[in-house]
């Protein structure tokens, strides 16, 4: 059982490119359809929860599923399985492809000069797609824009991303609770 958990998540970790979101359907196939460890509803419940936890989605997912199936040992086996493949691959790359190697090798240097601006584009795409999914409009667009500019400014204190995560959570808590309460009172009238 524990070995099964470890090897299943090792396999998943080995073959998922692009992290959490890409992983959900693969985990679903393994955990729900193949091993029948969880029903589909149980699985979806767990996934909803892991999305509201901080940290790496793929790891959270394996911890929650491992914990459900085998408590502490289960969560440890599943988490190790998820982490180990990428840890070993990146460690090998880090040893052989150090920043100096890239800088001192003409071919690698040219290749990475082309890749770096493409990476910026890869990060810009989710800005647009998540803004669309979150229905950001003219009234709310000032929030992401000012958060991005303030972090970018590099000024002390206000350029710390943690500040905005805390503020955003607090703001959401008070603002939406206030609106919901008002809504309840209005419907009582």
């Amino acid at each position: 059982m524990f070995w099964n958990l470890f090897s299943t998540f090792f396999k998943i970790g080995m073959f998922t490119f692009g992290g959490g979101w890409a992983m959900i359907s693969i985990v679903q196939r393994e955990v729900v359809e193949h091993h029948r460890w969880l029903t589909n509803d149980e699985f979806l419940d767990l996934i909803t929860v892991t999305q509201s936890l901080p940290g790496i989605l793929a790891v959270n997912m394996s911890v929650v599923i491992g914990d459900r199936l085998g408590k502490f040992k289960g969560s440890l086996c599943a988490a190790l399985g998820t982490i180990l493949p990428s840890f070993l691959i990146i460690l090998a790359i880090a040893i052989f492809l150090t920043p100096e190697t890239i800088k001192n090798n003409d071919v690698l240097n040219r290749i990475f000069m082309g890749i770096r601006p493409a990476v910026v584009a890869l990060i810009l795409v989710p800005v647009v797609t998540t803004a669309k999914a979150a229905k950001i409009g003219w009234k709310t667009v000032w929030i992401p824009v000012s958060v991005a500019l303030l972090i970018w400014s590099g000024m002390p204190v206000v350029s710390n991303p943690i500040l905005y995560i805390v503020l955003g959570g607090l703001f959401g808590y008070f603002y939406f609770k206030h609106r919901q309460l008002k809504h309840l009172k209005d419907s009582e009238k």
């Binding site: 998540t130 979150a134 929030i143 992401p144 972090i151 905005y164 995560i165 955003g168 703001f171």
Partner: peptide
Amino acid sequence: AGLRPVVIGLIGS
């Protein structure tokens, strides 16, 4: 709901 617009700003930054 409050975190969502912040996350977009984080990716933008």
